[in-house]
Every structure is written in structure tokens, then in C-alpha cells.
Design a protein around this nucleic acid. Structure first.
Lengths: 256, 256
DNA sequence: GGACATATATGCGATAGGCATATATGCTTT
DNA sequence: AAAGCATATATGCCTATCGCATATATGTCC
């Protein structure tokens, strides 16, 4: 689906055309800058949450923003997103996918900045190693439940109140939720929010959290088992005060 | 720091912060350029087709490419896509939507160019007014049909042979097809490829062309009529050598 | 008026989802 | 050790939808 290309850093070597290329170097003219903003999303306590960092500088100083950074001349967009995740949040090797590119003229009051938004999914257990200091927060994404009124999809609230978000980052988070909802049925994104081994109930809770509505337990179970995307591990959960559920893991191939 | 001159552009508001903003002007450093490429897609003779222009300049001189252009400092991405469509193809007021942003480092041998790909949908009748001269072609997108083997999705062929595409534009076209397939069920994109009034059979043929497989006629009819997205006009097609079909039009609201 | 081609309507079996009920099982309590 | 508990797992039924077949309707063409 999303073209995820990993580009090797082969250095430029167009010998004969160099003079020509220089003449067409678009960077000689003023043009927009490009940044990546990454929404690192997880689920804690039954709510979608995203990592936000407090801006130390103008513009929007003091507001909360998605971790981001400008795209270097020699790194791909995907690489820039991974770098931002590793540098600013300390997370590596997680699911990352491009979301949308925001290009309104005045979205950044400084200069013209085009932002390529990414979203990443991670099991909260992996976030424990990433220190969330005072300048970083795991904010709950407001996802109105079925029948529940009020609240924009994806708007952010910390613990009841509402955080002021910089730039158009609130729109980015709203789009993340919509994208997750749209892809949940046909893309293996639910598993990214769970540990390697999980129960069917845990998987259902992830789906319910993303979709913002309750699902029928039996139908969900049948659908998942028939999808061929999960495989029984033969193990069971432990230390629960009742019959333990079977543990499954994600199966890459759709076997039928 | 030295980019002070640049800052005079937006003297509109930020009185006190001007010096600060100048210090953070990212355009003072070398950074990637941004272009938009637009796939104008239509259906002619039962095949998805896209407008391609022959490149007159290096790089990839002589190859076929999607109409594109660099993004100006004072235009949004959406505006740039609309400008490219109007300027290079002569089409306005059609459905345009962002597709994906391609950011591999070496995708353009000249300099670093990040391409925000768009796709547009248009009824072929509207394209007749747009002159397709020798440098412009309406190339068929290779969409393998169910059971049919070979051929990358979205690869381009003129009339049997295969066109050489510049840059990563073949990947863009492939992604267009996948996106159309994915959105067809829940987004009103099929109607964009039809005239204002259309028959159910015409709509079904559009769906079949996009999906690359035959659909059951009765199920399709029932599904469309029950979707609430089409409304009977009371009129019928004329001059067909058999019983004329009822004409429908797209209804914005999903009434139930 | 009849042939023809396609549109439109109706019925039926297969399949999947929603729902209720019954059974299984590991842990905790008595 | 036995009973209780809470949840997992299995089974059956009803209904909506889809694929398929059949029947009827309605224009044009000869």
C-alpha cells in the first residue's frame, strides 16, 4: 500500500550533466521548507494517546506540538520521520507510515513550511523505556464514542482539560484517528498497539478504542480467527483470576 | 542570520518578533524543493487513463511524466495542484485530492525534490475541450484483471507497448489505482468519472474498471439504490436500440 | 406486429453478523 | 477438597446481504 521505500545513500555522480544540473538547481530560488511531524500513538487505559512535546521556542512557544524536524538534504522523508522518533522520543523500530502533507501557506508564521505528517504505532510497554520528562506528555486523543456528543475527533486533552496545540497539529491528530479507523479493517495496524502475544479480548479492546464503539464479541472472534492474520501460540495468559484466554500472535501471511 | 532580506515578505503582523523570526528562517539553509505532480485520471473505452506530458528538458528528456510544477512561496499545495491542472492541461473545477508524498533522496537526479502527488478525476467529456497535442497523451493504466497475470498495477501502456515514465511517476500511478480501489466503496469517486446523469450500468462499468473485476449486476444495483447516494432523475437514456435505462444523478446527502 | 436487446423485478440458497445460551477452565475462597 | 467465580470458548438460531437464476417490461429496428 503505502510505498515505503528505503533509499540507500548513494552519492550523486552525474559527471557530464553537472553544469546542466547546476543551471536547473531549484534551490537557487526561494522555495518552501519541508518538515516532518510524527504522531507517536499508543493506547493506555483504554484511550488513544499521542506523545506531545512542549515548544521551547517561538512560534507557539509554550504550546504542545508533535515531535518534528526539518528534512535534511540527504535523508528521505521516511528517514527523517524515523530520525525524529529516535532523536526526540527515543523510539526505534516501530511501525511508521506517512499520513498526509499539510501545505497551507500560513500554517507556520515564521516562514513557509510544508509539513509531511507521519504516524507511528507502538505498544505502551515499549514507551516505558522512553523517558517522558516534563517537556513531554502522553496526551489522550478525544475520540467521541458512539452516541456521545461533542468533541472534535482527535482533539487532545490531558486529563480532563484541553491542551493548546501548535500550528495545525490538532488537525493532524484528527486525521490520524480517521486514518486508523479507515485502515483497521484491512490493514494489520491493531497488532502494532499490542505486545507480541495477546488475547482476542485485548485485540478487540484495541479495535473498540480506535473505532469508538463496542463490537460484538462473538462476531469479532469469528472474524479474526477466519481472517488468517492471527495464529494461536499454544500458550495462555497467566495470573488472571479466571479462566485464562489463549494467546495469539500476528501472522504475516493471509493463509486461507 | 543572513537571510534578513527574505523576511521582509511577511511584514504583516509579527512586529516584535521580527528579529527572532529572521534568526530561525530555515530557508537560509539548503533544503529540499517541493513540487506537485498531478495524475489526471479518466475512463475511456473501458480503461483507466491518465494524462501524460512528454518532457522537453533534462532530466529524463523525452520520457513521459505527470504534469507537475514547483510549489510557489505563496500558494498552498492544493492551489499548486489546481494551477498545474489549469496551466498544463487546461482543466479546472474537477475533483482533486492529495495522494502521497514521495521523498526519496535520489528520485530526481537534478537536486533534491520532494513531490507531493495528487490525483484528479474527470469525465472524459470534459477532457475533449482540453487539447491533447503531440506532447500530451492519454495513456492507459495497466490494471490487471482478476485472474489475469503479469503487469504491474498502474504501469502505463499507450496502445499495446509500454511508455517510459520519468522519475517515480510509475509508482505514483500505481498508487493512484490502489487508492481508487480502496476508496471506491465508501467515497463518492465513481461519480466523478461520469457525466451528471448516468445509468446504473455506466456506474457499474466504472466500478468494474477501477476494481479490475466483474461485479454482480443485481447486487450492485441493490447496493447503489440502497446507499442513498444516487437519486433517480425521472429521465431515461435515448437513442439506444433497446429498452432505455433510467438516468440517475449523484445525491450529496446520505438519506436513509 | 414481431424480433431483439437490455432494463427491471422477484425468488431462493449460501454466507456472515448479531444475539442468546450452554459449556469449559483456571483461580480463589471456604 | 469442594464450591464459587469470572471469563473463555462452543453451539445454535434469526436476519440481512450477496450471488445467482428466472421472469417480466419496454424501448428500437425490421
Amino acid at each position: 500500500m503505502a510505498a515505503r521505500k528505503r533509499q540507500s545513500r548513494n552519492k550523486a555522480s552525474d559527471g557530464g550533466e553537472r553544469a546542466f544540473l547546476a543551471a536547473y538547481d531549484a534551490s537557487a530560488f526561494p522555495h518552501p521548507s519541508v518538515a516532518v511531524d510524527v504522531a507517536l500513538v499508543t493506547i493506555v487505559e483504554g484511550a488513544l494517546r499521542a506523545v506531545l512535546v512542549r515548544r521551547e521556542e517561538h512560534p507557539a512557544k509554550g504550546a504542545w506540538a508533535l515531535p518534528g524536524g526539518f528534512v535534511g538534504m540527504d535523508e528521505s522523508l521516511d528517514a527523517a520521520a524515523a530520525r525524529v522518533l529516535a532523536t526526540k522520543v527515543g523510539v526505534e523500530g516501530v511501525f511508521v507510515e506517512q499520513l498526509y502533507t499539510f501545505g497551507a501557506v500560513k500554517r507556520d508564521p515564521r516562514t513557509r513550511v510544508i509539513a509531511v505528517a507521519y504516524y507511528a504505532l507502538v505498544h505502551p510497554g515499549l514507551l516505558e523505556r522512553a523517558p517522558l520528562n516534563g517537556n513531554t506528555v502522553l496526551a489522550e486523543l478525544a475520540v467521541p464514542w458512539r452516541g456521545e456528543s461533542g468533541g472534535d475527533v482527535g482533539a487532545v486533552r490531558p486529563e480532563g482539560g484541553r491542551l493548546k496545540l501548535a500550528f495545525d497539529h490538532a488537525a493532524m491528530l484528527g486525521l490520524v484517528v480517521l486514518r486508523l479507523r479507515g485502515k483497521l479493517d484491512y490493514a494489520p495496524i491493531g497488532f502494532e498497539l499490542l505486545p507480541r502475544h495477546f488475547t482476542l479480548r485485548q485485540l478487540q479492546e484495541v479495535h473498540e478504542t480506535i473505532l469508538g464503539k463496542r463490537l460484538n464479541k462473538d462476531s469479532f472472534r469469528r472474524r479474526m480467527l477466519a481472517s488468517g492474520r492471527i495464529r494461536a501460540t499454544g500458550r495462555r495468559e497467566a495470573d488472571v483470576g479466571h479462566r485464562p484466554a489463549a494467546l495469539y500472535r500476528f501472522a504475516r501471511r493471509t493463509k486461507r
